[in-house]
Amino acid sequence: MQNTITKQRVGLNSLKKFASGNSIVLVVLAMIFVATLAEGTQFLSLQNFMNILRNHSVIGIIALGMSFVIISGNIDLSVGAQMVAVAAITVSFVNSTGNVVVGIIIAILSGCLMSTATGIIVTKGRVPSFIVTLGMQYIYRSLSMFFMSGGGFYLDKTKAPFYTQISNYNLFGKIPMSVIYYALMFVLFWFISRYTRLGRHIYAVGSNEKATRLSGINTDRIKILAFTLLGLAISVAAVVESSRMGSINSTSSGNAYELNAIAMTVIGGISMEGGKGRISGALYGMLILGIINNMITLLGVNVYLINAFKGLIIIGAVLLQRKDREL
């Protein structure tokens, strides 16, 4: 009798061990399984999957950058507004010159510059990033509305026909380019997190800033660079978004992107305490949010309930990870 109990325990333990650290993957698999059970859905079709990815690639790219900032022990609430500002600068430049390549370079420079400025204020001014980026959010949003007179900028398709193709072209007719950009950014950010000195230092700063500083590492520089990387992600997101929409709007674009990006990272197991979590988590987080949105539509559930499910998943995912850590 006792033997069987211990045997069961051992079995349960090894299952728990496998689940530990991988519970997020299990959640994704479970969700896909449930989705396919629903009768008559096209959930498993490639088309549908590409839709999920395409619809979430912009926020997903921002979430990659957000991961670095959160791992370094900070937060950025201004990403949505900043994306609109970067896109506005880019679109107006492309409209007036027709030069797409320089436009993209300008997008990246301006995005990185804005985030670097945030990082400098946070580190040198010793102001919590929550406060700085809350302020930045208002500033970017307000300036965008001022320069766009509360409306939006539309892409001049005659001057720069190529710009719309950036996001709307489908590779082999099947894979949307925005998914390719997400994949490229993912590889870049994953590489930085695992295989560079900067990546390691970002984790160290988030885990114990004092000890990292006393290891002879310029911690301010590391935190600023984490913001700069987020700036790069925002710039790419701005180009992809404005190209896909053919416009950018000062009031309706980029709303709640910061919260969705934070949700993706948190669902993916990146701890708000800093120092913990993997970049792959941001990918799982994006998949989970994407699949929920998609399932709810496919299953014909009332769309007003989407956010309730999202909320449940966010809390559930974090609870699950607490369990993982305790094991």
Binding site: A204, S207, G216
Partner: peptide, 24 residues
Amino acid sequence: YLPPNRKENAIIKDLSVQDNITIT
């Protein structure tokens, strides 16, 4: 510099033994 109060000043708690040794 090996600082006093190890837990507070020297240990990077989320990193592995290996990563703590190579970080400098």
